[in-house]
Design a protein around this nucleic acid. Structure first.
Lengths: 198, 198
DNA sequence: CCTGATCTGTCAGTCTCTGCCACTTGTGGC
DNA sequence: GCCACAAGTGGCAGAGACTGACAGATCAGG
């Protein structure tokens, strides 16, 4: 994503800008009226393009909120593989997620708004689930490699899914509180709930 | 559901039968051609009713596969509240899910087919997620009551979501294997993955 | 048999999403 | 500066899921 001065770049720049603008306008409308009460036609009108073009930038209405899942998933995976192999698996996962949350360049208010809208609409929760499944596919083999004993595949899947659940709960809680607590703090707390012994 | 000879019951019986028939036919079609490649019109034609009637029995196409989530969720909740209050929370949850899986009157082949179709389609996974959220809303307050210390709400949520993830993973694995292992066995194993210390 | 409630089908309409085609606009070569 | 080509855009038509309204059919109970 975002090459360094790609040949013929002005067009790509314009495209990215339009894409960001659609996403921004859509999020505002969703936050105000609710996802289901806003039509693609309204978004298009607010941005100043045709409904057809909105669908060219975003295959589905939900994608205006979710964004690009694959990129962040690979980021988490890279963090996880970089962890020392003798580290407890839960610590490694927690650290990987923390690195993601600590990534700069993320607008706090915008992020909260996105999470709020996301949590309040079934269609968006569904898209978020697909993102999690994508992440799980990336993380599970790595986790399985670090386990001993039988049934590593199943156990790795359980661990990854459970950790993703914690991640989600932490972000949801973070979106609902008013900046009183950091997302990292909430993430650690939800992770801690699964390990009363640690 | 299914009262004992409800007054004016013949109509209710017919209704339940038609409902079951639609669900059965739809599941077969989905399993053969894929969920997205089967239209409501085709299901209606195969059953012998109008498309409008199919939507009368099932608000959404996905509901023909998922069935009634609320009923089973309440069943699990009842199991959980009946557990001794000094039992470790994970044991109580495991036992509650086990009781659900052990419920008789569930066609094994039909169940596997439903889980197989469910796992292979995004729209159905989404509906399944909504079921889980419904269950989570029922179970979380009960779990929170059994916890000590701070942040019981968040911790209870993490525990419930993680346990539901285990439940789902076990059922998915069960649907993919060929009757070699019982669903209860797989459930215990996935639960065990989260408690290496126990 | 008749009355009223329930069930069903048909029709029209909304909304998301997808091809298709024509038109405009920016890009690069000459 | 001009021109061919690619990329972006808009309008149109259509599929498919779902909803509301209306009219006819069906069945329980008096």
């Amino acid at each position: 994503m975002s090459e360094v001065t790609k040949p013929g770049g002005t067009r790509a720049i314009a495209r990215d800008a339009v894409r960001a603008r659609i996403s921004e306008v859509a999020l505002d409308l969703f936050d105000e009226h609710g996802f289901d009460n806003v039509t693609v036609e309204q978004i298009a009108a607010a941005v100043g393009v045709s409904p057809r073009s909105v669908h060219r930038y975003f295959p589905a209405k939900e994608d205006t909120v979710i964004g690009d899942p694959a990129g962040w998933g690979e980021h988490v995976r890279d963090q996880l593989v970089a962890r020392p192999s003798d580290e407890p698996i839960w610590d490694a996962l927690l650290a990987s997620y923390e690195a993601l949350l600590a990534t700069p360049g993320r607008n706090e208010a915008q992020g909260r708004k996105a999470m709020r809208v996301l949590g309040s609409t079934a269609a968006l929760r569904a898209r978020n689930l697909e993102k999690h499944l994508l992440w799980a596919h990336l993380l599970t083999p790595i986790v399985a490699e670090r386990l001993d004993g039988d049934h590593r595949g199943l156990r790795a899947e359980a661990i990854v899914q459970a950790s993703l659940a914690c991640f989600d709960i932490a972000l949801t809680a973070w979106a609902e509180t008013d900046a009183e607590e950091s997302s990292v703090e909430l993430l650690r707390r939800s992770f801690g709930a699964l390990q009363p012994t640690a």
